[in-house]
């Protein structure tokens, strides 16, 4: 018997039916399959649904802060992603996987990484790039080597740098404060300004659609943690190591005087770090699953992010850090496969 094929065999008219003496006459089919015979209720679609739910607060606060314009960007991304996947699979005569909601998630993640004022054809183009080039051409769900949304964002950043980095002023803030209009907090502190940490965390501020409110991002993150869709390891370590490397680089460069609570809070909350850490760095497909691999990956992301932000010319660095990190994932996993339970460490020869 070929063990690799036909996981569930349906036996017609099988005689495991009712034994004589039983009251009802039963002559339907029973299933035969390899154990286990029970499965957890969670499916890929329920996981994707949870991610969508977790992104709703960030999107809602984006619409609140930047106006209806943000809603159009979000809708454009989601609809284009879903349509691209649908059309591609139809044309290629592949099984339709739109119902697993992964295209919706890609669309939402791309959208929260867009400035609200962008011409709508750009997010549409990015969505097509994400689904068609990064996801489907590599083999579809589970096969992409980079996070599709982030790869598309980087593609747009390179192609349309000014449109992708001109952030509109917030049309509403949660409460009055000295939030800077126009510039993102991260760009502001890079230019030497200081933003009150309380304002930074609790008020809305400029940036990409999803970056408007720190609290909204954290609400989504807590939801994903509570639902056990994600674990804290990669996001937590990524944020910690970013802060650590930012401090370290400033110390090495002799600019330790710029370090302050306001500066570090802005580093964590002012740009794409929180969104990246909780929704993109730990994207299942493109992060390591081995425990040690996750540590190496998160620390690498932190190092790259800190380098890009402090040494690089741009104030942001999360997207590039993550897609570069993505590329090292297969290698990291290969060398960090855990030693099986009960195996003793092999002694080196010689």
């Amino acid at each position: 018997m070929n063990l690799k094929k036909s996981p569930v065999a349906v036996v017609d008219g099988a005689d495991a039916n009712s034994p004589a003496g039983s009251t009802t006459d039963m002559t339907t089919t029973i299933h035969v399959s390899v154990s286990p015979h029970i499965r957890a209720g969670e499916t890929t679609a329920t996981i994707m649904r949870d991610v969508v739910i977790a992104l709703v607060p960030a999107c809602a606060m984006g619409i609140y802060a930047f106006g209806l314009r943000a809603l159009w960007v979000i809708l454009t991304c989601v609809l284009t992603c879903v349509a691209t996947e649908f059309v591609y699979q139809k044309l290629m005569k592949l099984p339709l996987t739109v119902s697993d909601l992964s295209a919706v998630v890609t669309g939402m993640i791309l959208a929260v990484n867009m400035p609200a004022g962008i011409p709508l054809w750009m997010p549409a183009l990015g969505s097509v790039f994400a689904i068609l080039i990064v996801k489907q051409l590599f083999g579809g769900l589970g096969q992409n080597i980079m996070n599709p949304a982030l790869a598309a964002r980087c593609f747009l950043l390179i192609s349309f740098a000014s449109a992708m980095t001109s952030f509109p002023e917030t049309v509403r803030t949660l409460f009055e404060g000295n939030t800077l209009s126009g510039a993102t907090p991260l760009a502001a502190i890079k230019a030497g300004a200081s933003i009150d940490w309380f304002q930074m965390i609790f008020n809305t501020h400029s940036g990409c659609i999803g970056e408007a409110s720190v609290i909204a991002i954290l609400v989504g993150a807590v939801y994903l943690l509570a639902r056990r869709v994600i674990t804290i390891h990669i996001p937590g370590l990524y944020i910690l190591s970013t802060v650590g490397f930012v401090c370290l680089i400033h110390l090495v460069m002799g600019t330790a005087d710029t370090l302050s609570v306001n500066y570090l809070v802005a580093q964590v909350c002012g740009g794409g770090l929180l969104l990246g850490a909780f929704f993109m760095a730990n994207d299942y497909v493109t992060c390591p699953i081995t425990p040690l691999g996750q540590v190496i990956y998160a620390v690498l992301l932190g190092l790259l992010t800190a380098l890009f932000r402090v040494v690089g010319s741009s104030s942001e660095g999360v997207s590039y850090a993550i897609i570069i990190g993505n590329l090292f994932v297969p290698l990291m996993e290969r060398v960090t496969v855990p030693r099986p339970f009960g195996m003793v460490r092999k002694k080196r020869k010689g």
Binding site: A14, D15, A16, H31, V32, S35, P36, H37, I38
Partner: peptide
């Protein structure tokens, strides 16, 4: 249900 064998006959 975790490690058992699915039957196709009770005989």
């Amino acid at each position: 249900p975790m490690m058992g064998t699915a039957l196709f006959s009770l005989d």
